[in-house]
Design a protein around this nucleic acid. Structure first.
Length: 619
RNA sequence: GCGCCCGUAGCUCAGUGGGAUAGAGCGACGGUCUCCGAAGCCGUAGGUCAGAGGUUCAACUCCUCUCGGGCGCGCCA
């Protein structure tokens, strides 16, 4: 419904006042994540599945109940790699058997004899450590990666339908640093869920309704000029926004004026407010395509708050019919005390107009009938936890089935450093607001400099600098648990060494370079001598963790699990390459390593793609 | 005041459906490009996991309390 064509080339104003009512577009937190997969094991590879079966057979052989033991067989990575490839703490199984853990571990280990896949099962105290045959490990992992089999490639449809409400900026304002987190996290979650086989609906719930927009309209109607608006829409609207903020201090009546305009807009009549709204919305929406294009973000649906204008009456009727709506001080509210929420959820103001909650309620109903979602993720900042608790609470009190799908995915604030070295919420009082384009431009410029220095003959250097620079910013945003506040400082943001996007991209470029220099095609993974890859066990075991990382990321709405895996894999392959050359080796070794290098590159590219990042062939 | 989140190495963070000696990166110090990309790799130093109780065979991980930091709390979003 919205124009997707990009408007490139304009820059954000250098200062931005994050006034209280201006910085609160949606983005926030949630209740406990709904875990949609049975938490029985981490069996994401054939090797693990095989081992599980062997273990359960052995357990049954010891006279234990197979079904009772099944959930207790929790294979986990050993604390120390020297112990083995996977470990099984035998405490609970020993309890089931009524034996001392070390003795039981011994008995069980003895029954898991070596086969084509399992090399050994060794009891170490109460733990059993397993080791796979190196050739089997290499074969299983490399063939799966090369053929694009799940979890390395996209999984078959899993029946889940996931709505992801993300980015959702208030489009009456410039796209600034504060908008980035919901955008990058939501984008990554869309890609991750698709990879795991879900049907995903990425939704941009634009803030194009309500008081912020009404204030912008008020400013424009008082001071606006259409020529200036068209010349530089976002910058001009930002100026209006700032002016409104200044003048409302002198003239508090402005807010009442804005409220009147909103009332007129919501009346549905074809009036000046409606035409004004349409104009401002169109202009700002166009301007937002620039940042989205740079970040590689797309949406399946751009249904902002205004989209629900004609659906709110129906939603209110539904609430009324359910009998949970009450009048309080002239407003229509739902009390949620029995759900442990003290603050009532206000659905209609005393002047009859609607609120954020009303529109989210209408949106929930709409999404339910339109998409039949198993989960609806709201990627919105943690400061809006109460809002989503209330939304879910109202739906729960109404006994609406969709209530259980509603899931807030909160994330931390973006903090900036004050003059005295403390961290505080981004606010431009001290002129510290930073706009996304400025950050991306800085990063790209720095990358360009690094390229000039390290790879001066690189073709398409500008394009690659854009690719690498933007990735550094996105990767940085997805590196830590989303609930952590992001400490924004230029130094670490523009750091390309260590655990960074460019580090992972560099690994990809290095691997690509080796594949080019090999001057022979990558053999089929099934055709190589897997035994010679015994020296690559750390790389292979890390590769094997990919599925677990993606699964956890999907279940917990936590892209950082994927980010972490790409860093780990890049590190392992870098280390491996130090002592293991590919080019110039005898064919048997060269071929096996070519498959390994190619698989590592593929998996890194896949991991980055899940984060919304591309990897250049050279950099 | 009430509710929620966070507190692990100098800094930024992993690890928190309890499990074997708490891991990275940055910074510091020391190595490493006549050999596939040094945006790399290897090593050294650095931790009473905020504190105190409790549950458990086992607690950084679960429960309670305290301290420190942050966010939120009726017609904004």
């Amino acid at each position: 419904m919205a124009p997707r064509a990009g408007l490139r080339g304009w820059r954000w104003s250098s200062a931005w006042r994050a006034a209280r009512d201006g910085s609160r577009e949606r983005r926030s937190m949630g209740r406990a994540a709904i875990l949609l997969t049975p938490r029985t094991s981490h069996t994401v590879t054939d090797l693990h599945a095989h081992l599980r079966t062997r273990l359960l057979d052995a357990i049954a052989g010891l006279g234990l109940d197979r079904a009772a033991a099944e959930p207790l067989v929790r294979l986990e990575p050993p604390k120390n790699r020297d112990h083995g490839d996977v470990a099984l703490p035998a405490f609970q199984l020993a309890k089931l058997a009524g034996k001392a853990p070390p003795a039981f571990a011994n008995e069980l280990a003895a029954r898991v004899t070596a086969d084509d896949v399992v090399e050994s099962a060794t009891a170490t105290g109460p733990f059993i450590n397993f080791r796979f045959r190196r050739a089997a490990l290499a074969r299983a992992v490399l063939e799966a990666i090369q053929s694009g089999a799940a979890p390395y490639g996209k999984a078959a449809a899993n029946g889940q339908v996931v709505c992801i409400d993300f980015s959702s900026p208030n489009i009456a304002k410039p796209f600034h640093i504060g908008h980035m987190r919901s955008t990058t996290i939501g984008n990554a979650l869309c890609r991750i869920h698709r990879h795991t086989g879900a049907t995903v609906h990425g939704i941009n719930h634009l803030g194009d309704w309500g008081m912020p927009f009404a204030k912008m309209m008020t400013a424009y109607m008082r001071w606006g000029n259409e020529q200036e608006l068209h010349a530089s829409p976002m910058r001009y609207m930002f100026e209006l926004y700032k002016r409104y903020g200044r003048e409302v201090k002198e003239n508090p009546g402005l807010d009442a004026e804005a409220a009147k305009h909103f009332q007129a807009l919501e009346s549905g009549a074809d009036n000046v407010e409606r035409r004004m709204w349409q104009l401002l919305r169109d202009e700002s929406l166009k301007a937002f395509q620039g940042p989205y294009a740079r970040l590689g973000v797309t949406f399946d649906h751009i249904t902002g708050e205004s989209f629900f204008e004609d659906k709110m009456a129906g939603a209110m009727q539904r609430v009324t019919a359910s009998g949970v709506l009450e009048q309080s001080e002239g407003a229509a509210v739902v009390w949620l005390k029995e759900l442990g929420i003290k603050e009532p959820c206000i659905l209609q103001k005393s002047d009859g107009t609607t609120l954020y909650h009303t529109r989210d309620l209408a949106a929930a109903f709409y999404r339910e009938v339109t998409f039949h979602p198993t989960r609806i993720l709201y990627v919105v900042g943690a400061e809006q936890k109460l809002h989503f608790d209330q939304l879910k609470g109202v739906l729960t009190k109404m006994k609406e089935p969709v209530a259980k799908a509603v899931e807030h995915v909160p994330f931390g604030l973006v903090l900036s450093k004050t003059d005295d070295g403390k961290w505080e919420k981004f606010a431009s009082r001290s002129g510290n607001a930073v706009f996304l384009d400025e950050i991306l431009d800085e990063a790209v410029a720095k990358v360009r400099g690094v390229i000039r220095e390290k790879n001066p003959d690189l073709a398409d250097a500008d394009q690659i600098a854009e690719q690498v620079g933007v990735s550094a910013i996105v990767f940085n945003d997805l590196k830590n648990s989303r609930i952590k506040d992001v400490k924004f400082d230029w130094e670490s943001m523009l750091q390309f060494e260590g655990e960074t996007g460019p580090y992972v991209q560099y690994a990809c470029a290095r691997l690509s370079s080796i594949l080019r220099k090999a001057e022979c095609p990558v053999p089929a993974a099934s055709a190589i001598d897997h035994g010679v890859l015994a020296d690559a066990e750390r790389v292979l075991l890390t590769m094997m963790d990919f599925g677990t990382a993606v699964q956890k990321a999907a279940e917990q709405s936590e892209p950082s699990h994927v980010t972490g895996h790409t860093i780990a894999l890049a590190g392992e392959i870098h280390s491996y390459l130090r002592d293991h050359y590919v080019v110039g080796q005898e064919p048997k070794i060269r071929d096996a390593r070519l498959v390994l290098v190619d698989a590592a590159r593929r998996l890194l590219v896949t991991g980055l793609a899940l984060l919304g990042i591309t990897a250049p062939e050279r950099m």
